[in-house]
Design a protein around this nucleic acid. Structure first.
Length: 824
DNA sequence: GACCTGCTGCGGGATG
């Protein structure tokens, strides 16, 4: 099938390719050659390699051979990337490569940033290669002439596939790829992915069930060095806490020692505080330190990225906003404040330094409390052993399917049976039942059971067996709503004097009064007024301030990392781990061992501790925060069914606490029964406020499925309105259409994503195989202390402040430890 | 000077 292609790859082309490589001092790696050969043989597949190792180039070599044939009209190569900023960089690289090889191909970008006139021209005369996002691809497929656009498509490349896999954006792309394969038979699909535990699955999902594909292994993973900033004396280092600002002097020193540093933090407010801390410590760095996170204005972020590229910045404090994208000239140093939460995430961040082939990536971790040192040692262990997290693909996301069906109905229409067949050629919908398919079709044509009276929900019309969107208004509104990313509950924040600062949570602003000062984008500002969904601010002088809080995801510690933490603790107990972190934290671990015991993989440690508030049950399954929250609720519920009692709950990544006035009558045997899986889902539904959580979840589903319209750009409906209308629909459906599959999906998503029911089940099963050990320490152990502090923080304090109490408790524990040391 | 968790990503176009 690729004879033409092979013929066009003449010796001349290969010579030019070689010359182009030589010019840059690059060498053609075996895996790049392998990808190219596979491409020329008509294969599809997935290329796996760490960042900055030339995998983009590997994917481009095949299509470049197409380019050597010259432009003969029509779109031949489509490059999908999850980030608009990456699209711009990619276009630049590809255009240069094509030109250097003597091709007259046009390489263009199309995304939300593309101007209307360019879009119009692109539709009239498509470029030979287009770099775009999954959403823009979907929009392209919604045009009536979309199919003719893609008819000659030879290759689609999906960059950063690991970022899309496991998300609804990935599901949407799966559907679009199936569509493209229907339009352009013989289309090759190539994906690019960073390291994942389930690479083969990632390839299969990309190519669709049953399709054959190659897995090209790139260069061996770069070696990564994970080190820690160690506190001078661990005696004074907090047992709990999240900010880590105590280590500021050491961090300043580390930044000083290198040319440029990326300082990753876990939250936006943490980034704000660290930025402020650095500026206060080193006023001479002003202008050469920058702050980068998701709430900061895009233009400002772009300027910072440019500054980083140009090597003008000494340090950028950021969140995951800089995990991806912007092909930096490498920074000299990467630092991570607080728990990295996962191995893959830490490796990805480490990869931002030492871009040269063969160079070592380095990351310097900054612990925010003592046990995080163990976590860092665990991350190193996991990285060395290649224990990287998997990303599980989503299935049966009916909201995405509904959106896609309207898109295709708009883009020239479809017939039911062929469409169903096409949809089942995706991994996400391979197992779609007749009932589900029937339901989604009914939903897009009639609005389903409850909404059939409303014409705006009759979006797709079937005439003579062909389904189309005939109403222009419906079509226009649908295009505006394409995509699966739920909009933030955000307000704009602007200077009174003009100029945008970024976005801020509506809920945060609503708590402020006029004249209140807060820290935003690294500046102290004062709220002047709120109107038109915008918070207007002016510069403020020093004074009382608040740090904005943004609503974000709550990342639990990954299973891989949590398992490694347990192993490191066990190794530390037997003296088998001699890492700097474990050595530094040895005294604390010894305290834990003496006062109670160290948790080990084949035991579940349960501690009963008496305090003036009552009796606390602490236990440490090391299964991540979300699971522990669910588990705490489940245990309390199961316990109170036997003996009525009130519990106060607390959870973190390592364990959970149940506080009760009286000590519940519990022994090992009863505990084991409480931890039995039983009918987990039914119990969870009974004891958690799942219906309220599902209601909130439904907001996104309703938007994706097209049940609520987000409003026209610039005249955005406030999120409260969206929440109100989706809430209304939720109630109507629950009452009059309780079989609605979108409700069902909302409940399913709550169980799976929000409560991590699957991981909870695995945790309970694992506990079933462990020996339960009860200890009754006289005081809070190092492991219990953060849980205790966490609970206090969430309770309303009497006259004392949280910090007072934490410090007093810490002091008394320290005294106790001191006494022990002396008597020993 | 005390205060203090919770990430990221996308998206329209006919008419004047």
């Amino acid at each position: 099938m690729s004879e033409n292609l092979t013929a066009s790859v003449t010796g001349d082309f290969d010579a030019r390719l070689q010359a182009w490589f030589d010019e840059r001092g690059w060498r053609l790696f075996d895996f790049q050659r392998e990808a190219r050969e596979a491409y020329l043989a008509g294969e599809s597949g997935l290329i796996h390699s760490p960042t900055g190792s030339g995998k983009s180039l590997a994917a481009w070599l095949g299509p470049l051979a197409e380019a050597a044939g010259g432009a003969d009209g029509g779109l031949r190569v489509l490059w999908i990337t999850p980030l608009r900023a990456l699209a711009v960089d990619t276009r630049q690289n590809l255009a240069e490569a094509a030109a250097a090889l003597g091709s007259d191909w046009r390489v263009e970008v199309r995304s939300g940033d593309t101007s209307q006139s360019v879009r119009a021209r692109q539709r009239r005369r498509p470029p030979e290669a287009l770099v775009t996002t999954p959403e823009s691809l979907s929009v392209l497929l919604s045009y009536a002439d979309g199919a003719s656009w893609f008819r000659r498509l030879a290759c689609v490349v999906v960059d950063e596939w690991h970022e899309l896999l496991g998300t609804k954006r990935g599901v949407q792309l799966e559907l679009c790829l199936a569509r493209l394969r229907g339009i352009a038979p013989g289309l090759r699909t190539w994906g690019l992915s960073a390291t994942l535990a389930n690479l083969a699955e990632a390839r299969d999902v990309l190519l669709g069930p049953g399709a054959d594909g190659r897995l090209v292994r790139g260069q061996a993973p770069k070696s990564v060095s994970i080190r820690s900033v160690l506190p001078d004396t661990l005696e004074r280092f907090p047992w709990a806490g999240h900010l880590g600002i105590r280590l500021l002097p050491a961090v300043v020193e580390a930044i000083e020692s290198k040319g440029s540093t990326l300082l990753f933090t876990n939250t936006r407010s943490q980034a704000e505080l660290w930025f402020q801390g650095l500026v206060d410590a080193r006023p001479d760095w002003v202008g050469r330190i920058a702050l980068h996170h998701g709430s900061i204005d895009r233009k400002l972020r772009a300027r910072i990225e440019d500054g980083l590229r140009a090597g003008e910045l000494r340090c950028v404090v950021c969140t995951s906003s800089l995990d991806l994208g912007v092909d930096f000239s490498p920074v000299d140093q990467v630092m991570q404040v607080g728990s990295p939460k996962g191995v893959a995430r830490l490796l990805q961040r480490a990869g931002r330094s030492g871009h040269q082939p063969g160079a070592v990536s380095e990351v310097l971790c900054v612990p925010t409390h003592a046990f995080e040192l163990v976590e860092i040692a665990a991350a190193r262990r996991a990285a060395e052993q290649g224990r990287i997290e998997a990303r599980r693909p989503l299935v049966r996301s009916l909201d995405v399917l509904a959106q896609h069906l309207v898109t295709v109905a708009l883009g020239g229409g479809f017939e039911a049976e062929p469409m169903r067949a096409e949809v089942s050629r995706t991994h996400a919908f391979a197992g779609l039942s007749d009932a589900e398919w029937g339901w989604v079709m009914d939903f897009v044509t009639r609005g389903g059971q409850a909404l059939q009276g409303y014409p705006q929900y009759r979006r797709v019309e079937g005439v003579d067996g062909r389904y189309r969107v005939t109403d222009r208004g419906i079509g226009q509104r649908h295009r505006m709503g394409i995509g699966t990313i739920a909009s933030d509950t955000a307000m704009n924040i602007r200077w009174l004097t003009g100029g945008s600062l970024g976005t801020i949570e509506e809920s945060f602003v609503s708590r402020l009064e006029r004249g209140d000062r807060f820290l935003f984008a690294g500046r102290l500002v004062e709220l002047a007024q709120v109107r038109d969904m915008t918070a207007w601010v002016r510069r403020a002088k020093k004074g009382k301030r608040t740090v904005p809080r943004w609503q974000g995801g709550r990342m639990p510690l990954s299973t891989e990392l949590a398992d490694c933490v347990l192993e490191v603790l066990a190794a530390a107990g037997s003296g088998a781990d001699e890492s700097a972190e474990v050595t530094a934290v040895a005294g604390l671990l010894e305290l834990q061992r003496r006062w109670s015991r160290l948790p080990v993989p084949d035991e579940l440690l349960v501690e009963f501790t008496r305090s003036r508030e009552g009796v606390s049950l602490f236990c440490y399954p090391f299964a991540g925060r979300l699971v522990h929250e669910g588990l705490a609720t489940l245990l309390a519920w199961r316990l109170s069914r036997q003996t009525p009692a009130t519990f106060t709950l607390s959870a973190n990544d390592y364990g959970l606490e149940l506080l009760c006035r009286e000590e519940p009558a519990i022994d090992e045997e009863r505990l084991a029964a409480l931890f039995a899986p039983g009918d987990l889902e039914a119990d969870l539904l009974a004891c958690m406020n799942t219906s309220e959580i599902a209601r909130r979840r439904f907001r996104d589903i309703a938007r994706i499925a097209g049940l609520v319209f987000q409003g026209y750009p610039g005249r955005g409906k406030s999120t409260r309105q969206i929440q109100a209308s989706s809430g209304l629909i939720f109630d109507v459906l629950e009452r009059y259409d309780s079989d609605n599959l979108l409700l069902d999906q909302a409940r399913r998503e709550v169980l799976e994503s929000q409560l991590e029911a699957r991981r909870m089940r695995e945790t309970l099963a694992a506990i079933g195989g462990k020996r339960i050990v009860i200890e009754r320490p006289e005081r809070l152990t190092p492991l219990a202390f953060p849980l205790w502090a966490e609970r206090l923080q969430s309770q309303i304090m009497s006259s004392e402040t949280w910090r007072d109490r934490v410090e007093r408790m810490a002091a008394s524990l320290e005294r106790a430890a001191e006494r022990r040391r002396k008597s020993a």
